[in-house]
Design a protein around this nucleic acid. Structure first.
Lengths: 148, 148
DNA sequence: ATAATTTAGTTGCTATAACAACTACTTTTC
DNA sequence: GAAAAGTAGTTGTTATAGCAACTAAATTAT
């Protein structure tokens, strides 16, 4: 089978391109694409633990730790201790973080518009479905392989 | 717009999962998923420059340099000087590299089978089309933005 | 109630991504 | 044909991905 027929390869190559374009448009804001995903998720659901946050963005917990470090350094979030459980933090978006969110959201929507050019909405919806399906398939086999 | 509705986010999240599963299955071989993509491409078209290779795998030239470093360290490829142009190399797969390719190809096909479970072939084909379209859209806007 | 286990988060490590700046070699220009 | 411009590859740097091992706190078991 040729590389160009491998869905895995195609997904990742496309993802890199999209991120590259998005990163270019984000560069004036000083926020990276992955920092954006974490910040956006936090804006959507504030007051969740880092572990839950990691789950919501589909990232490893260690990566979320480091992305939060960056966001905290930029004062876009703060880590509040969880009064219920002193092992955990409840990261929370600062006012400055909210403003960054408001600034970036339209940039992202524009990038999405650009990369979706010429693709009808039904097909886009179908694409999202398929990607979710593939992610789920991969997850379930990941669990098979490591029966901790 | 919610993060879960962002195609960019969905593509990258799915790509990470797929790579994670593939990496797990590749771990006994000592080759990473990205090293695989470069090795596979080289097996498909031997005797191309690093620049062309980078283009074919959709990676930055600097990343290909470093991935080739890894593959060379593992003796899966060698860099031959290009007699036509002494600035460039023509990376070439070794016998050992070919054997690795033969070993890994079925592993990859199996991973693709797993992640495609329950998706009819026409839909998979449509998915590939859409991903290519999106990658092309992103590329064309990348060029717009940096008119060097 | 204390020891054993589990869990949230972090740190260490290696690989990859991408930009900028650099070296060495080619091609163009005049 | 020598200087100028361009090109192939590398190196430096910062950010992310993910595994393993660690710390500290919570939960469970006895």
């Amino acid at each position: 089978m040729l590389l160009d027929d491998s869905i895995g390869f195609l997904i990742n190559r496309t993802g890199r391109r999209v991120s590259q374009l998005f990163a270019l448009r984000l560069s004036p804001t000083g926020v990276t694409t992955e920092q954006w995903s974490v910040l956006a998720r936090l804006c959507e659901e504030d007051g969740i633990s880092q572990k839950d946050l990691a789950h919501r963005v589909g990232k490893d917990q260690t990566n979320v730790t480091r992305i939060l470090d960056q966001l905290e350094r930029k004062e876009l979030i703060v880590r509040r201790v969880n009064p219920e459980d002193r092992r955990s933090y409840l990261p929370s978006v600062t006012d400055s973080g909210r403003r960054a969110y408001e600034e970036i959201a339209p940039i992202e929507e524009n990038v999405i518009r650009l990369i979706s050019e010429g693709i009808p909405p039904e097909q886009l919806a179908a694409l999202k479905e398929l990607l979710s399906r593939i992610a789920d398939n991969a997850s379930s086999h990941l669990n098979d392989d490591r029966p901790e």
